[in-house]
Simulated assay, not measured.
Amino acid sequence: MTDPTWNSLLRDQLAWHWTNQLRDRRDGLTDDEYFWEPSPGSWSVRPRGTGTAPVQAGSGAMTIDFAMSQPDPPPFTTIAWRLGHVIVGVLAARNAAHFGRTPTDYQSFEYAATAKAALAQLDTEYATWQAGVEALGEAGLARPCGEAEGPYAEHPMAALVLHINRELIHHLAEVCLLRDLYLHTNRQTRREAS
C-alpha cells in the first residue's frame, strides 16, 4: 500500500479481521448454535413472551433479553444475544445516527429468528458502516461525533470508528469462541451418550 490515508487504515483494520478471522468462522452457524444456552439463565433472543429478563425488547416476533441496570453478576449471553447487540447497538444505531440508515434501537429492531437471518443482518450493517466510514474521507474523521454519541459528542469521528472496530473485534471473537465451546461440549455429550 502506497501512501495510505487514516481513513483507509481504519477501514482496513476492520476489513482484515472480517475477512481473515471472522468470515470462515461464522459460515455454517446453525440455529442450534445460535440459540444454545451454555449456562442456566442465559440472555438470548427469544420468541416474544418467552423471556424471563426484566426487559424483552424488539418489534417483531423475537425479542432480546436485557435489563436497565445490569444484574451482578451479569447473565451469560448466547450467540444470538451477542449478534443482536452487535447488529443493533454497535452498528445499526450508529449507521442511523451517522450514515443515513433508517432510525432504530433495541426496542424497535426486528430480531432474527434464525442464524442465517442474523448473519444477513450483520452483513448489511457491516457493509453500511464500512461505506459510511469511507464516505467520511479524511476531513470527516476529524469532525465531532455530534449529539448522537452523548457524552462523546465532541470526540472526533475517528475515535468512534476506533471504538466500533474494538467492539466488533471483541464481540465477534466471543461468537467464535462460543462456537468452539458448542462444538466441543456437544462432541463430549455425544461420546458420553454412546
Rank of each mutant, 00 (worst) to 15 (best):
T5H: 06
T5W: 06
W6S: 14
S8F: 01
S8G: 03
S8C: 01
R11M: 08
D12T: 10
Q13K: 08
L14K: 01
A15D: 13
W18F: 12
T19N: 15
Q21G: 10
Q21T: 04
D24R: 02
D27S: 14
G28T: 00
L29R: 06
L29N: 04
D31V: 04
D32P: 05
Y34W: 10
W36N: 02
E37T: 04
P38H: 15
S42C: 13
W43E: 08
V45N: 02
R46D: 07
P47G: 07
R48G: 01
R48N: 05
T52C: 00
P54A: 09
V55T: 03
Q56C: 13
A57F: 11
S59R: 07
G60M: 04
G60T: 05
T63E: 04
T63V: 15
M68A: 14
M68C: 10
M68Q: 12
S69L: 13
S69N: 12
P71R: 11
P73D: 11
P75Y: 06
T77K: 08
T78N: 09
A80D: 10
R82G: 00
H85F: 12
V86N: 01
V86P: 06
V88D: 02
A92W: 08
A93M: 14
R94F: 03
H98R: 09
G100K: 10
R101T: 09
R101H: 13
P103R: 09
Y106S: 14
Y106G: 15
Q107H: 12
Q107F: 08
F109D: 00
E110Q: 14
Y111S: 00
A113L: 07
A113K: 03
T114C: 06
T114A: 05
K116F: 12
K116P: 02
A117R: 07
A120H: 11
A120D: 15
A120V: 09
Q121I: 03
Q121P: 00
L122R: 02
L122I: 02
L122V: 02
A127T: 11
T128M: 08
W129F: 14
A131N: 13
A131T: 09
G132A: 03
V133I: 03
E134S: 14
E134C: 04
G137N: 02
G137Y: 04
E138W: 07
L141W: 06
A142W: 05
C145S: 06
G146W: 09
A148V: 02
E149Y: 07
Y152N: 15
P156M: 06
P156G: 01
M157V: 00
M157I: 02
A158E: 14
A159E: 09
A159F: 08
L160F: 07
L162P: 02
H163T: 07
I164E: 06
I164R: 01
N165L: 03
I169M: 13
I169Q: 12
H170W: 11
L172W: 05
A173G: 13
A173S: 15
A173M: 07
V175G: 01
C176S: 15
L177T: 05
L177Y: 10
R179K: 14
L181P: 01
Y182L: 00
L183V: 00
L183T: 13
H184M: 10
H184K: 12
H184S: 03
T185L: 10
R190H: 12
A193V: 08
